[in-house]
Design a binder for these strands. Structure first.
Length: 572
DNA sequence: GCCGTTTTCGGCCCGACTGTTTTCAGTCG
């Protein structure tokens, strides 16, 4: 883990324990620490190299936190944090994972009943001890008991990979859209912002009459439990996750979308901006007293606040509001910008599932101007192609080219970056390819220095045009390799090698937080490709595009939005 | 704890829901 992430983790723990200390999740000190967590995590420079005055210059980091960061970097500890950790051990802090238990309740439980862990809380519920406490009752006790039973499914920290959440959300959106009286349906929340893990799905429906929609929603067979349902909305759990529905009239679609999409910090900043103008912003609209200033669309609300429209993927309060105010938001990629797909497999690869002809036909149908067929290299057992097979496929591609005069078909390969940075085949054979992707498919747990060395060695290989799915992560299943990203950026800038933004929903690799770090240098270029193994997977490009947007990647930096002749010129 | 085209002190987003309460505290998003 790089030091910014380690520092951010320590500050996050400080924020959490400060909640307990102050007895409020929204104490100003807690919020200040939380703000510092984001500031450090996203800061492009390694904070361990900065002194206190440089740290203070980071927006959201003041004198006190700057000194704590320095203390952490120098000693590995923060004294205040150590003291808080002694007072609130992990098993006690775990109480906050129980829905309905906040800092105040946790402290009361400890003080009144000596409860120090979730297990002890469960025992106290069973013994009906909670209902005797001041401010508690039988219902609260029952609610906490049920929440503990559900902890595996609905603990506050539980998050699903975005791919799974998307499938669930899209199914719900389709079902709701088919109900009479529904004008529009949109999923919001962290899913719309395109975070790579999702805690719950928030769905917004536009309709004049909410009741029939709420009834149909809670009656769906996938619903396991209804947590609450009332005028205008409902919350349910399915086997996989919690889903919150909200139904609003058409004239509130914009304000409700903003509210429901977040991020919380983004909303707070917008509301502060409204206050500065003497207005009030809530989910019902932007108000000047009783007069509605704007509410029907997000666009008009941003405009009324003197801001350019901020795309949902950017709404994290990490500088997008300031950029929108001064007209310097990044020029982001749209799906229709993509003219080429530079990472495509067919059944020639062992794991491909559509034929070469079908893949090429699907690319042409999609209106692409160029593609690169990139079967696995020979070092990937079973799935990889021998030299003889490579040459055989090259012949077949040559035949197919004649039938697609408007599609430039590159014959490429996806090479395997070996343990020490070597790749498949030999230099002479590699020189025959039009396009080479090189990716890590093995040895995921080497130490950081070794990982960095092997990738940089591949970057320096003149045959290699782009590094595929850099970290090798599988969201929710496998963490990425440990790698010195700044060193990789230096290397690809030196050689002109591109970094791939892999569109597979389980990969989204390069991750968006790393893309943001790459953004401050203007000498790194990207491709956005699908890694399609089936004709239907060309459509996945939208996920790669969304990930690039979340990473603030500008259009000018993406190679495969260029017209084919410009692309070929770049390729040389 | 942080911050300042009204401020170096005095503010810090807004509302719904729940449960235990006769007016509010806590949690959540």
């Amino acid at each position: 883990m790089r030091s910014n992430d380690l520092v951010a983790a320590a500050l996050a723990r400080l924020a959490l324990l400060t909640q307990l200390e102050e007895g409020s999740p929204q104490s100003f000190r807690t919020r200040a620490y939380e703000r510092a967590v984001d500031a450090v995590r996203l800061f492009p420079i390694d904070v361990s190299t900065l002194d206190v005055s440089e740290l203070r210059a980071i927006d959201g980091v003041g004198d006190s936190t700057a000194k704590k960061i320095r203390e952490f970097v120098d000693t590995g500890h923060i004294q205040v944090l150590d003291e808080l950790s002694a007072r609130y051990p992990d098993r006690f802090v775990a109480l906050l994972q129980v829905p309905g238990v906040g800092p105040r309740t946790a402290i009361t439980l400890r003080h009144e009943l000596g409860i120090e862990s979730v297990d002890q809380l469960r025992d106290a519920v069973t013994a009906e001890q909670l209902r005797e406490l001041p401010g508690f009752g039988a219902k609260t006790e029952e609610k906490i008991g049920k929440a503990i039973d559900r902890l595996g499914l609905a603990g506050k920290d539980r998050r699903l990979p975005i791919g799974k959440a998307l499938r669930i959300a899209e199914a719900i959106v389709d079902r709701l859209a088919s109900i009479d009286g529904v004008n529009a349906v949109r999923y919001c929340g962290s899913l719309r912002r395109f975070r790579d893990t999702i805690a719950d799905v928030d769905v917004l429906v536009v309709a004049e009459e909410p009741d029939p929609i709420v009834e149909a929603f809670v009656a769906d067979p996938s619903v396991r439990e209804t947590l609450g349902a009332g005028a205008g909305g409902a919350s349910v759990t399915t086997d996989d996750m919690q889903i919150d529905l909200r139904v609003v009239p058409p004239d509130q679609f914009g304000s409700a979308s903003l509210y429901f999409t977040g991020a919380k910090a983004h909303n707070i900043a917008l509301r502060q901006r409204a206050i500065d103008r003497g207005w009030l912003l809530n989910e019902y609209g932007l108000m000047d007293g009783d007069t509605v200033v704007a509410s029907a669309t997000e666009e008009e609300i941003y405009r009324a606040l003197d801001l350019d429209f901020i795309s949902p993927e950017l709404r994290e309060d990490v500088g997008e509001i300031e950029a929108a105010a001064e007209g310097s938001l990044p020029d982001l990629v749209r799906v229709e910008d993509i003219r080429g797909d530079l990472h495509v497999h067919s059944t020639w690869s062992g794991d491909g599932r559509s034929s070469l002809e079908d893949m090429i036909g699907a690319a042409a149908t999609r209106g692409l101007e160029y593609i690169a067929i990139t079967e696995h290299g020979e070092d990937l057992s079973i799935n990889g192609l021998s030299r003889e097979t490579v040459i055989e496929e090259r012949g077949q591609i040559e035949e197919i080219r004649a039938r697609y005069p408007n599609l430039v078909i590159l014959h490429g390969a996806e090479l395997n970056i070996g343990r020490d940075g070597d790749v498949d085949y030999d230099a002479e054979f590699l020189a025959e390819f039009d396009w080479c992707v090189a990716s890590v498919h093995s040895h995921f747990d080497l130490p950081m220095a070794r990982q960095t060395d092997r990738v940089i060695k591949a970057v320096a290989n003149p045959a290699i045009n782009v590094i595929g799915h850099l970290t090798g992560r599988r969201i929710g299943r496998r963490p990425g390799i440990e790698i010195d990203f700044d060193a990789v950026l230096d290397a690809v800038a030196d050689t002109g090698t591109a970094l791939e933004i892999n569109s597979h929903i389980d990969r989204l690799d390069v991750p968006a937080d790393l893309l943001m770090r790459a953004r401050r240098r203007d000498d790194v270029v990207f491709t956005i490709s699908t890694d399609a193994h089936h004709t239907t997977e060309f459509a996945n490009i939208k996920w790669g595009v969304s990930n690039s947007r979340r990473g603030w990647v500008e259009r000018s930096r993406v190679v495969n939005i260029r017209p084919v002749h410009e692309f070929l010129t770049w390729l040389g």
